[in-house]
Amino acid sequence: MLFKDLSLTLKRGEVKAVVGASGSGKSTLFELVLGNLKPLDGTLTASRASEVFQDPYTSFHPFYSIINQIKDVASLDGLERYLDEMKLEYSLLLKRPHELSGGQLQRCSIVRALLMKPELLLLDEPTSALDNVIQLDVMKLLIKHLDKTAMLLITHELDLARWCADEIIEIGV
């Protein structure tokens, strides 16, 4: 059993980080919170959530433009501002996922997640596809939006967790 007697509560403005090595159960926790997996025992209640996965290529359909995939799940209200903050051109949204770099696609994934106006933003290694300078900019941007959401960050980078999280949950150690 990966988790026993785990209790986790997040409120708007909070960042909690789940840190552990590969295979420790971080992504399983993520899937439980999303409702993609069911707990063997107990209850799980999650607010309106959006997610940013580690691999952006698996979170977009390969044959549809990015903008159509964003429109499918979110209002475009605030799109220009998020694109500007993420240093993305609108023209990139007219392309299909394989036409973008991993970093560009990951930033599109973050834009999509923010446009969904979640109460809970689930971040599974959200900056692993980005170079170090962009990583810092993206994390600062995400933290800037804490007035609207809570964040659960899953990472193996303890330094990142220490930098941004109100609480760190270490698993599998």
Results as ranks from 00 to 15, higher is better:
residue 56 P to H: 07
residue 115 L to H: 08
residue 104 Q to C: 07
residue 17 A to S: 14
residue 16 K to G: 00
residue 109 S to D: 04
residue 78 G to S: 10
residue 103 G to L: 08
residue 116 M to L: 05
residue 38 K to F: 08
residue 91 S to V: 11
residue 47 S to C: 05
residue 168 I to F: 07
residue 97 P to Q: 10
residue 140 K to N: 15
residue 48 R to L: 12
residue 54 Q to A: 06
residue 162 R to Q: 14
residue 43 T to N: 13
residue 134 I to T: 15
residue 19 V to E: 10
residue 144 K to G: 15
residue 140 K to C: 01
residue 134 I to P: 02
residue 51 E to Q: 09
residue 130 L to N: 06
residue 145 H to N: 13
residue 96 R to M: 12
residue 8 L to M: 07
residue 159 D to R: 12
residue 2 L to C: 01
residue 137 D to Y: 02
residue 81 R to M: 02
residue 37 L to Q: 12
residue 98 H to I: 03
residue 76 L to K: 03
residue 111 V to C: 11
residue 161 A to T: 05
residue 55 D to K: 08
residue 160 L to K: 04
residue 137 D to W: 00
residue 35 G to A: 07
residue 63 F to D: 11
residue 18 V to I: 15
residue 46 A to W: 00
residue 107 R to F: 10
residue 57 Y to W: 10
residue 153 L to F: 08
residue 83 L to I: 07
residue 171 I to T: 06
residue 71 K to A: 09
residue 29 L to H: 04
residue 84 D to W: 03
residue 170 E to F: 08
residue 104 Q to V: 04
residue 5 D to K: 14
residue 1 M to N: 11
residue 57 Y to V: 00
residue 73 V to F: 05
residue 166 D to Q: 05
residue 139 M to G: 01
residue 49 A to L: 05
residue 91 S to H: 11
residue 144 K to W: 00
residue 3 F to K: 06
residue 164 C to I: 15
residue 35 G to W: 02
residue 74 A to V: 06
residue 60 F to Y: 14
residue 70 I to F: 08
residue 129 A to G: 02
residue 63 F to M: 08
residue 11 K to H: 15
residue 15 V to P: 06
residue 36 N to H: 11
residue 16 K to D: 00
residue 3 F to E: 02
residue 152 L to N: 03
residue 65 S to L: 02
residue 110 I to A: 06
residue 167 E to H: 12
residue 23 G to S: 04
residue 89 E to Y: 05
residue 84 D to Y: 09
residue 36 N to Y: 13
residue 152 L to M: 11
residue 116 M to C: 15
residue 111 V to F: 10
residue 47 S to V: 01
residue 159 D to H: 12
residue 48 R to C: 01
residue 61 H to A: 14
residue 31 E to L: 14
residue 118 P to M: 09
residue 113 A to P: 10
residue 125 E to M: 10
residue 87 K to A: 13
residue 167 E to A: 10
residue 163 W to H: 08
residue 86 M to K: 00
residue 156 H to V: 07
